[in-house]
Simulated scan of single mutants.
Amino acid sequence: MPDVPLLEVRDLVKQFSARPGGRRTVTAVDGVAFDLRPGETLGLVGESGSGKSTIGKLVTRLLRPDRGEIRLAGRDISTLSGRAMRPFRRDVQLVFQDPYSSLNPRHTVGDILGTALRVHDTVPRSQVAHRIRELLGQVGLDPAHAGRYPHEFSGGQRQRIGIARALAVGPRLIVADEPVSALDVSIQAQVMNLLEDLRAELGLAFLFISHDLAVVRHFCDRVAVLYMGRIVEIGAREQIYADPRHPYTQTLMAAVPDIAWLRGGSPRRIRVPSASPVAAEAGAQRSGCRFRARCPVAAPVCASSEPALTLRAGGHRAACHIR
């Protein structure tokens, strides 16, 4: 795998107004940094509200960051205007969570794919129809169905159409935001196998956003764990799942349904206060470790200073004073 990153994110910050027109702001992404190399898959995991989807929108420049750098193939795209961003849109594409609302119901599948091809001028107009058929076949759909509308397809088929649309312009990076969470379990497996095949065939890099730890473990090379807008742990898949170092990561792993008790064992559980991240933030989390109000091993030092994301063995990084 090449050593030169395809995507470099440095000190990324994004804030939103807590109320329309109000002065109080909520920091959704707070100093996030990571690299992504060509052909690599990085999973972003964490609770709802941790900032995963916001990072995806920042990387695709659907949102403009308040601070930080987003370097794509060495060029900072974080401050580019809409017109200047157009050449980079081909390199970064998004697969949305909801295959029902992400496709225009008034357009046929051929129109949906053809629009992407014509806007980015990726193939001569005389070859657009051929390319549409090729894309449908590539994602496992019948090319003869290009004249159908989205409502004539199942949920899994619609997500395949969304993947075909992302592939249409020949991207190098795909941001997949919960791409299988709205699908049945059996269909999830089919779509994930399709993404794995496309990754191997086309050399695609993925920023994969998901709540499903089993899917992330199957698909991703590395995993970044987010809590309240910050990365608290990042490392290779084997490191994160076999030896999680941050108490929050351990909590996530322990929350996965465990049937050990059916076999006579004791289910692994780590009990933490049930307060949500937003509630914890409101409870005097102005300094120190932002997980300390829920952490089972918190110490006085956790209240006085925020732990840095420090390097452990094998490139594994964790932000914890205790572990």
Rank of each mutant, 00 (worst) to 15 (best):
Y241A: 07
G162L: 03
D212V: 05
V278H: 12
S81Y: 06
I270K: 07
T122H: 09
Q15G: 06
V297T: 07
L63G: 02
L7K: 02
S81Q: 04
L7F: 07
D197Y: 08
I322T: 08
L44F: 10
V169H: 07
I77W: 03
A214W: 05
P300G: 10
R64V: 13
G140W: 02
R271S: 15
V109C: 09
S102G: 06
V256W: 03
F291Q: 04
V297S: 07
F88L: 00
H218Q: 08
R133N: 12
D98W: 01
A319Y: 10
P257W: 02
V223K: 01
T108W: 07
R67K: 14
R90F: 03
G156T: 09
C289G: 12
T251V: 11
I234W: 00
G56K: 06
G162M: 04
L311S: 09
A255N: 11
A28M: 08
R160S: 04
H120S: 11
A214Y: 05
P247F: 08
N104E: 12
A242G: 09
E201F: 03
P143E: 07
G229W: 12
P38L: 07
Y100N: 04
T54I: 05
R312E: 10
D66K: 11
G43H: 05
I163M: 03
G170C: 05
S274N: 13
H321D: 09
K57D: 07
V191G: 02
A168C: 06
W261S: 15
A189Q: 11
E281A: 15
G229H: 08
T54H: 10
G110W: 05
V297H: 12
R245V: 15
H145T: 11
I163L: 03
A255I: 07
R263F: 15
S102I: 04
L103K: 01
D66L: 07
V175R: 08
S17H: 15
F206I: 00
Q190I: 06
L80R: 05
R271H: 15
Y241L: 06
K57I: 01
I55D: 08
I322L: 12
P143M: 11
R312P: 04
R148T: 06
Q97H: 09
R133G: 15
F291M: 04
